[in-house]
Amino acid sequence: MIKIDHLYKKFGRNQVLLDICLEFRENQAIALIGPNGSGKSTLIKIILGMVLPQEGQVYFEGRPIAGQSLYRQHIGYMPQMSRFPANMTVSQLFHMMKKLRKDEKSRDMDLYRAFEIDQMGSKRLEILSGGMKQKVSAALAFLFDPKVLILDEPTAGLDPIANEILKEKLQKSLGTGRLILISSHILNDLDDITSHVCYLMEGEVKFFKPLEQLKAETAENRLNRIIAQILKHTDTHV
């Protein structure tokens, strides 16, 4: 579904991504993990066409995305941080989004209902708390029933209940021909929803493996233990 081919990105003198080659297929839920500054957000932004790579190409369903915008109708994106125009209300925002993409008929209102966004409809976006903004952007990401879901640190600001709702929704979405890409630091949250783990470090892919295989290799069950195991391993060998 998404193929990343020898991707290089520099910000100034700072090499952020170094020869990234990955292929994500449908029915995969990929946990994109790695330390701060390892290039996770940059990789996501390149897939979304917000950051342009120096070299290499990203293909969406076989076609290069360079200069394209239409492929993004298949992607639902929940950014790490959201800020909206100060004087607009929640319902105005949803109204605008629907009007912007009025040709797309399929809607997924599950999260919209579960997060009770209708009830904050008349509230101005400026006065929403961080968690409420996250709820709004999560509902927006799912709104058009996209084939690919990209979530950048989705659980950082959400309360435990909302977190559970989101996780359930992700589990439900998986296995219906979708691709889910989540970047997060909170590994515990990712346990039940990931099928693959992609570990980035200093702009390079350390490994990209199915979770089952990692479990077998490390004889651990929890994602955070697995990662700890692997990192310990590489440390002693290098």
Partner: peptide, 17 residues
Amino acid sequence: YNMYEFMVLLLAQPLKR
């Protein structure tokens, strides 16, 4: 500058820059 995050959200939609 204040609209930056909102522009990011719009850029994730199928819209031209």
